[in-house]
Structures are given as structure tokens and as C-alpha cells.
Design a protein around this nucleic acid. Structure first.
Lengths: 341, 341
DNA sequence: TTGTAGGCGTTATCAC
DNA sequence: GTGATAACGCCTACAA
């Protein structure tokens, strides 16, 4: 009906309704204390003018914009595990009548902080996927923040140490003694990765095993990183018979490296991943991996956020158990393979 | 260092630097015309105070917040094809130094409009996934909008009609004469779905075939919708020997229905999908489907948006060709199946 | 080169 | 019940 009337403000609505701006504002925000008749008149004026609140103005005035919006700060969208977490988050958010505002984080720290302040005024709560150590500081205490990972006042995560331990013990129980690890990034402050690594070391120790320094390679959490690191491992004079990769992507890279070098999995090399992304079930062979309940993690995070915004008390640190999913990529070491080359 | 100093404004910075607010503003926005010394002094003051611009205030003042942000309005995140499009969009955006702000659209139209005004002031451009007919109106002309689908002044989409035609002709060429269609939602204004359906009808017509009304069922674009609709089709006295589903999800539902009823695919029933999502390649049997280049579509949309924000001219309607990917779910009708029950 | 006034659209406060 | 006034933090326009 009305075609792009520049911008309609409450002043316009007020004029049409024959009341003051304040009254309009009060109607909009369902404040009590006014004749039902006035209220109705204002409503009609809003209809007529096609008025919509200006979120920026409201945010400026309020120092906060309660907008049924949950802000999400995530490094990438194309990492499978991120997608699965976000899926879980969005279903729970939707069920609660909330919307997700997902921001891909900038590599530029200055931009990063700008995004944060934006969310701070915009959202009712913020979910940070993969926080780095200092990310918790950029949000004030005026907005609830839940982080996925080890850092933060409110966290949701899987038991990474136990997961690393499980994976490694599985290999030990199969009879492997030369077990390597594809760790995450070298320069990372991510404690999650270090926890998985610590679980690996603990399991080795408990089994009375040890691993040479060269058995610890950086898989970079990526397919290519995993492939490269595995090539290095397989070129060692005393090469490992089993590999525990810090995530599924690098495990898939390991799978590729093995196949490229003509090694059979699991006969010549056993591989265990971490995450249990969808793809893990359809690799060839299907990947034995440590499952973290990604969707549930996303759901729990939003759930926690909702409770916090409502001022309800809640356990600030949710930790999900890790479980081992045994598939085709692990087996006892073959005679041949366990001998030195 | 400084711990949550309430909110630092340019006034604070100005005081610390011993200049006026204006000068600070000018430094922030890289305006020319000031001593390098002053500039440096202001920079240090910004560091010291930990100042960050307030996006709400800036947006209010400017009526626009150029923030290297591309707003995305999407109905759901968990639809596989959406995820693949967004992946493409995010890679292109990242390469251009832009960030994505993804909003899941609200079912509530009022909220919907609020989201739109929010993005309008926030973003440099907006990408609307699945526009409904009237969505194009909620954004003014002050911000570039690209829609994925048939509606809008700037669109990126696959050739849906050709896709529907290809799929159906494929079935015709295999020798099928009783070909049903799982359409999208019934109440939808989505022309994309109607185009696919029109392609189906055109191919039938060109082959001198016709289909009873009952051969057109609503697959709802979902797995369960596809399954239910297929059950109806397979219960018909003269049941179809082939089904063209409007998307892969409903085709997968059809697969499930067939298997539940003890029918073999493709021997007893051929099925063609649409989209070529990742999952289509790993179903049992793998799905013959019409591929739309989802990642490329996302990339092209952001590319178009970037050109628009830069004021460059660009073809406002990008259309990608649809291609047929032949896999295991289609085959000639068997003698037996083509006979009436 | 730097500073001063005024306004962007909304809401809180406090009179009427 | 309703309305005037003063913020909120920033930017544009104009003065000094």
C-alpha cells in the first residue's frame, strides 16, 4: 500500500494517531497504563504508516536490543562438525522462538572486536564456537556468553581427554605398540586439542608404552594436513602400525595417504578419528572414531544460554561423555606390519 | 589492562588525547586533514582506553553501517542444499574480506520485517535464500539485495524448468510411460517448484504422454513428505513405474517408501531427485538426480552482491544450467512392473 | 587543522 | 493516562 515512505518514525505514527511519541513507544513495548482506545488508535496508525522499529535507535537508547536473537560467532561454516553443532543450536533456538544470527569470525582481530560489540548490543546471548583464550574478554558481563570448548565461564564440550584415552586404549587393546598421533595445530592455544593429546599420552603410559617424538605430528585438523603428516609418519624407519588422529578430517587425510602409498587399512595401518562427523560412516573403510554428540552440544549450548537470559540458574560447565564408535579402520596389527621394515 | 570501563566513547578518547570528539571521529574514519602527530596521539588514546565504535550509534547516525558484512536471510540451516549454498557464499565472501551475518528467518512476519530492517542498516548487501513473493518489498532500494530463486530484481538460480524437463525425459527415454511427480509444498508461492513441475509436464507432453491427476503428489520437499506421498502413489490401482521428485530429500523419502513396501529400486520403481546434495551419492542405490551447482550459486550470489556494492554493473539475473547425474536409481521399467497389478 | 551545534530514532524520567 | 525533555554515541555541516 504505502510504497517506501522514506523512514517512518514513531513521530510519524504519533502525528497520525494524534498522540505523543511517548505513547506510541509505550504501546509498542506493551507498557501498561493507557486507555484501550488510545492503544487501538495507535495500533491502527502503525498499520497505516507501515512503521517498523529502528533497531539501531533502540539499541542506542537501551544499550541493549532484546530481539530474540542469539548471536553465534564461528570461524567457518564448512567444517562439518561446526555445521552439525549449528544445526542442533538452531533447532533448539527455533523451538524457543529465538533466531540465530551467525557471524563468521574475522581473522582480523580488530574486526573481530567490532563483531563482538555488534553482537553485544544486538543479541540476547552469544554462543562462541572455538574460543581462543582471550575471546572471553571481548564481551562484557552484560550479556550471557557460552563458549564451546575449554575456555570461558560457561562452557559446553565433550570430554576430550577421555576421548583421546579411549581411542588410544582401543588401539592398545588390539595389540598395537607403535601408535602415533596426529595432533591439531602447532601454534594453537586450543586446549581441546591438547586434552586429546594428553589422553593419548595417558593411555600409552598406562599401557607401559612410549612413543618417539617423531610419532607426534601436526595434522592441522584438516584433510591435507592429515595426509601430509601421515606421509611423514609412514616414511619413518620404524613406522607406526596405528594412528590416532585429533579429528575425523585429518583421519580421512591419513586414509588417503595410506591408500596413496599402497598400504591397506586396517591390515597395514589402523586409524582412529575424533568427532564422528557424518562422513566418517561412509569412508572406505568406515572410520573408527571417537564420537562427540555434536547436535546435542549445540542444543545444550543454546539451552544454557536461554536459561541464563532468563536469569535461571544452570550448571555453567556442561561436559558430554566421549564414546568410541568401532568401524572398519582398526584391527590388530598384522605380523608383517609389526615387523620393522 | 583496562577492565570493562563501562563504555568508552569518543568523548573519553578525546579527553585522553586532549583533542575534540570530532578529531577522534576523523581519525577513526581515516579522514584527511590533520597533523600526523595528532593522529598518532589519538591512536594511542584509543589503545589506552580500549575504545571500540558503537555500531548502533554509527548506524543511527549514518542510516547505514558499512561494516563489511553481508546479511543472509535463510529459512533453515539444516537443509543440506542451504548448507552447500552458504558454504559457497562464505568462501567467496571471505576471499573478499567480507563476513557473513546469517539470520534464520522467523516464521512470524512481523519479526521477519524487523530482521530485515536490522540487516538494512547493518549490512552492505543482503542475500535472501528462498524469497517468497513479497519479501522483495521489505528491503528498500538503499541496499543491494540478491535473491536465490525466481523472485526479485537480482536473482541467481538454476534453470528449474530445464531440470524438470531433463529428469522426466530421462525417464521417458528409459521407456517409462507411467511417470509421477512429487511436487513441493501445496501452499507455496515458490515459483522454483512450479518451474520444475512445468518442466515435468512439458517433457510428458513432448513425449505424447499424459499423467492422471493422482500422479501429482505433494512431497513437501522433505523426507517424510516424500515417503508419505510415495506410499499414496504406490497404492494407486495403476501405479507409476517412475517418480520424479522435486528435490533429493523427498526422493530419499520415496526410496524409503519403496523399500518399506518391498519394492526394488530401480527394478520395480525408478526415482529421480533434484539438487544433487552430497547425500544423493551415498544412498542405496545412489540417486539419479538433477544437479544444481549449489556452491557455485552461493559464490555467484555473493559475487553479484559485491559488484553491486561497488557500483559495478552486472548481469542481474544469473542462471546456471541444470545437468542430469545418472546413478543407480533409474532403469527401464521391468515387464512385471509395467503390468497392472 | 580543529571545534561547536544539531540531529539520527528511541526510551527513561518526571512532570502534568 | 499522557506528554515534554533529556539522554544514548556518532557523524555531517558549518565556524573558528
Amino acid at each position: 500500500m504505502i510504497d517506501t515512505p522514506a523512514t517512518v518514525t514513531i513521530a510519524d505514527v504519533a502525528r497520525v494517531a494524534g498522540v505523543s511519541k511517548m505513547t506510541v513507544s509505550n504501546v509498542i513495548n506493551n507498557k501498561p497504563g493507557m486507555t484501550e482506545e488510545t492503544r487501538e488508535r495507535v495500533r491502527r496508525a502503525i498499520e497505516q504508516t507501515g512503521y517498523v522499529v529502528n533497531p539501531a535507535a533502540r539499541a542506542l537508547s537501551n544499550k541493549r536490543l532484546r530481539s530474540n536473537l542469539i548471536g553465534v560467532l564461528t570461524p567457518q561454516l564448512n567444517w562439518p562438525w561446526v555445521a552439525e553443532i549449528l544445526h542442533g543450536a538452531s533447532t533448539t533456538a527455533e523451538a524457543a522462538g529465538l533466531n540465530l544470527a551467525i557471524f563468521t569470525t574475522a581473522s582480523n582481530p580488530a574486526l573481530e572486536r567490532e563483531r563482538a560489540t555488534l553482537l553485544r548490543t544486538l543479541a540476547d546471548g552469544v554462543l562462541v564456537v572455538i574460543p581462543t583464550a582471550d575471546e572471553q574478554h571481548i564481551f562484557g558481563n552484560d550479556i550471557p556468553v557460552v563458549t564451546l570448548g575449554a575456555y570461558g565461564q560457561r562452557t559446553v564440550q565433550v570430554d576430550n581427554h577421555a576421548g583421546g584415552y579411549l581411542a588410544t586404549r582401543h588401539l592398545v587393546e588390539l595389540g598395537h605398540t607403535r601408535i602415533a598421533h596426529l595432533a591439531g595445530k602447532h601454534d594453537t592455544t586450543l586446549r581441546d586439542a591438547l586434552d586429546r593429546q594428553a589422553g593419548y599420552h595417558a593411555a600409552l603410559r598406562d599401557a607401559g608404552l612410549s612413543a618417539p617424538d617423531a610419532y607426534l605430528q601436526q595434522g592441522e585438523f584438516s584433510e591435507t594436513g592429515g595426509e601430509l603428516a601421515t606421509r611423514i609418519l609412514l616414511a619413518l624407519p620404524e613406522r607406526p602400525t596405528a594412528i590416532f588422529a585429533a579429528n575425523d578430517l585429518s583421519a580421512i587425510g591419513a586414509l588417503r595417504a595410506a591408500s596413496a602409498l599402497g598400504l591397506r587399512v586396517p591390515e597395514d595401518l589402523s586409524i582412529v578419528g575424533f568427532d564422528d562427523i557424518h562422513a566418517a560412516a561412509v569412508t572406505d573403510p568406515p572410520l573408527t572414531t571417537v564420537r562427540q554428540p555434536l547436535e546435542e552440544i549445540g542444543q545444550a549450548a543454546v539451552q544454557l544460554l536461554i536459561q541464563l537470559t532468563r536469569g535461571q540458574s544452570a550448571d555453567p560447565h556442561v561436559r558430554f561423555p566421549a564414546t568410541l564408535v568401532t568401524r572398519g579402520s582398526t584391527a590388530p596389527p598384522s605380523q608383517e606390519a609389526s615387523m620393522s621394515p
